[in-house]
Design a protein around this nucleic acid. Structure first.
Length: 617
RNA sequence: GGCCCCGUAGCUCAGCUGGAUAGAGCAACGGAUUUCUAAUCCGUCGGUCACGUGUUCGAAUCACGUCGGGGCUACCA
């Protein structure tokens, strides 16, 4: 149903016949692409120009020759040569109509089953527990969630793993706080809330101490634990005891963990994130770390240097002198000279565990671009260690910046916490709904009276959808300028626009009291009589193309770009093509099919992004 | 110092494995509605694609250099 493979199949024999170098044919076939300008057809083939060079002919002549060799087919109108040798391709409307009809009958919406499904392990979100989630955590979480949904929908097997930071200094803080600042009654009543309060109190205390040291202003709020204030020192002592296996501290850690996880899961739930298959954090891998170091030493991959155990860099070197360190990439430390292990050790233990436990084809890490160098060296070390049969991917994403373009961590206060943002978003969803309701009411439109529960549901779908879409619609490699106004927008290229387009699809069926089932079980013929219908059909058939490219490059914004085009096509269609009052019963049936299918594709595509739809809004 | 990323309309961003006149949204301005949901649609305005040189039929896209911003650079993750 995706037109592109059909087009390639049509041209492949001709190109194979003409090209002197058969190896270039796949490249040429890749030069068939969607036209940027609809005046240039639905697709355009750009291979005549390089092919002409290869054949030492004029591009327009080669283009004409290719067209002349095209076999009889019901796919294309007669192609046109334009400009320096472009071949403009326009699909026959009858072909489009037939394909859309078969797509409607397909429960998978035209997505062809995979010849070779793969098994992925995706590592995303991975926050430090016992700290409130920051807006900076949202990108990994949302992108990873979308990729998990997408790959699964295409037919791959995906194991999602949340590599929690559950063994760090924040537990020293909680333990110290528990011993000194806990209100027992409050803890008994609501441990989660009391622990959060204690955590905040400790941070405030440290911040105050740091201020007394007259350095607070120059330090990021995230890093206040790094200052050697009296409280920090005490917290570090508790952390060290925990790591050393102190029974009291370990017992407290075990007591706290469920509450920390519960807090985390509450936010995930609010965000609408799929449950993780695993949440194996640092503590899970901790017992394996000595073995990792011993094994790497035994295999000669790692060795001692300046008291630490290191693994050479990508080039196989361990820079020693000042000169070398300036020029060369650093080695990775897997054991510090004080005997403690590092994140690299933990990452190596993780990769080994995942290979043994899951035997994946690919392991994907959805992590900040700042760790690019770490992943490059870590992947190289894993390979040397024998992890060779698995594809390793660092799906990186840009920094979260303030509105002024500064790194977000310089922001102060609680403004950048995730939970308040989500609450704001839902509140905004509610306000938007009420405004829209009032306007329609005032205009004299027949507006349904919905229950508070339904309205609340709409507000939540709009709110969390807006926040996610704002992030997912941007190329993940770009830095993201954090702007609540942008995240809460409900006009233009936003989740709300998509949800609205979907709700309108459903409104037609509701208004006409029509059952949609027959448009899926035995779809009627599709008639293309208006350009808006043609555009919509073409857009529907491009669904698979959008998903495949999004998956191939781990780029969710390809899906939002598709959604935006589809939703616009639907809007223009609504504008120009009356459905329930269509001129003939056949046309009405055809349009109902388009509306139903359009809604289904919208809903499915949004679902792949983790964005909900509602039947009315 | 070395390496990596970025610089596109007033703002936020697409486009970057080279392709036709560089596209959206927001903002500004002007229109459309007794609606199958106006959270919409149509139109206008707006660009030396940071700058320079090169590669070629063709460069926002590739190469080199300059300027500006950010990041990483063995004992934090």
């Amino acid at each position: 149903m995706n037109p592109l493979p059909h087009l390639r199949t049509l041209f492949e024999p001709i190109l194979t016949q003409l090209a002197t170098n058969a190896a270039k044919v796949p490249d040429y076939l890749g030069m068939i692409r969607v036209s940027q300008n609809p005046e240039h057809g639905d697709y355009q083939a750009n291979f005549a120009m390089p092919l002409a060079k290869e054949l030492k002919k004029k591009p327009p002549d080669v283009a004409a020759e290719i067209i002349a060799k095209l076999p009889e087919n019901d796919l294309l109108e007669l192609p046109q040569v334009a400009g320096p040798g472009f071949i403009n391709l326009k699909l026959q409307s009858d072909w489009l109509a037939q394909q859309v009809r078969s797509m409607a009958a397909d429960s998978r919406l035209g997505i062809t089953p995979l010849a070779q499904p793969k098994k992925f392990v995706i590592d995303y979100s991975s926050p430090n527990v016992a700290k409130p989630l920051h807006v900076g955590h949202i990108r990994s979480t949302i992108i990873g969630d979308a990729l998990t949904r997408l790959l699964r929908y295409l037919g791959h097997s995906v194991i999602s793993d949340n590599h929690l930071g559950d063994w760090g200094t924040q537990f020293g803080m909680l333990i110290h706080g528990y011993r000194n600042f806990l209100v027992q009654e409050a803890y008994a009543k609501d441990p989660l809330r009391e622990l959060a309060r204690v955590y905040v109190e400790i941070r405030h205390l440290i911040a105050k101490e740091a201020e007394d040291l007259a350095i607070a202003k120059r330090v990021f709020p995230d890093d206040i634990e790094d200052l050697q204030t009296p409280t920090v020192v005490q917290c570090q002592r508790e952390t060290a005891k925990l790591h050393a296996g102190d029974p009291d501290n370990v017992a407290l850690w075990q007591e706290f963990m469920p509450h920390c996880l519960e807090a985390l899961h509450q936010v995930y739930h609010k965000l609408g994130i799929l449950p993780f298959d695993h949440e194996h954090g640092e503590s899970f891998y901790n017992p394996m770390l000595p073995g990792v170091v011993a094994d790497m030493l035994a295999k000669g991959i790692a060795f001692e240097s300046e008291g630490a155990i290191v693994v050479p860099n990508v080039k196989g070197n361990v820079p020693k002198t000042e000169e070398e360190r300036k020029k060369e990439e650093p080695p990775a430390l897997i054991r510090k000279k004080d005997g403690a292990f590092t994140y690299t050790t933990s990452d190596l233990a993780t990769i080994k565990y995942r290979i043994e436990a899951f035997q994946p084809d690919a392991m994907v890490y959805v992590v900040d671009f700042r760790q690019a160098l770490h992943f490059r060296t870590f992947f190289a070390q894993a390979r040397r260690w024998g992890c060779s049969d698995v594809a390793l991917e660092h799906v990186s994403f840009g920094a979260m910046l303030s509105r002024e373009g500064k790194p977000l961590k310089t922001r102060e206060g609680n403004a950048s916490e995730l939970l308040p943002l989500l609450d704001d978003a839902v509140e905004l969803g509610l306000r938007s709904y009420r405004e829209s309701y009032a306007q329609r009411k005032e205009f004299g439109h027949d507006v349904p009276e919905l229950s508070d529960a339904v309205i609340q549901d709409i507000a939540e779908a709009i709110g969390s959808g807006a926040v996610k879409y704002a992030d997912l619609s941007q190329n993940r490699n770009s830095d993201y300028k954090y702007d609540p106004e942008k995240m809460l927008a409900t006009e233009g290229n936003t989740a709300t626009y998509m949800q609205y387009a979907y709700a309108r699809c459903r409104a037609i069926f509701r208004k006409g009291q029509i059952d949609d089932a027959r448009f899926r079980s035995s779809p009627p013929a599709v008639m293309i009589v208006h350009p808006a219908e043609r555009t919509l059909c073409l857009q529907l058939l491009r669904f698979e193309e959008a998903l495949l490219s999004a998956a191939a490059e781990y780029m969710p914004h390809y899906i939002t770009a598709y959604l935006w085009d589809l939703a616009k096509s639907l809007s223009v269609f609504y504008e120009n093509c009356p459905v329930l009052t269509a001129e003939s019963p056949e046309l009405k049936e055809s349009r109902l099919l388009l509306v139903d299918l359009g809604g289904r594709v919208m809903k499915q595509a949004l679902d792949l992004l983790g964005i909900r739809t509602v039947e009315r809004m």
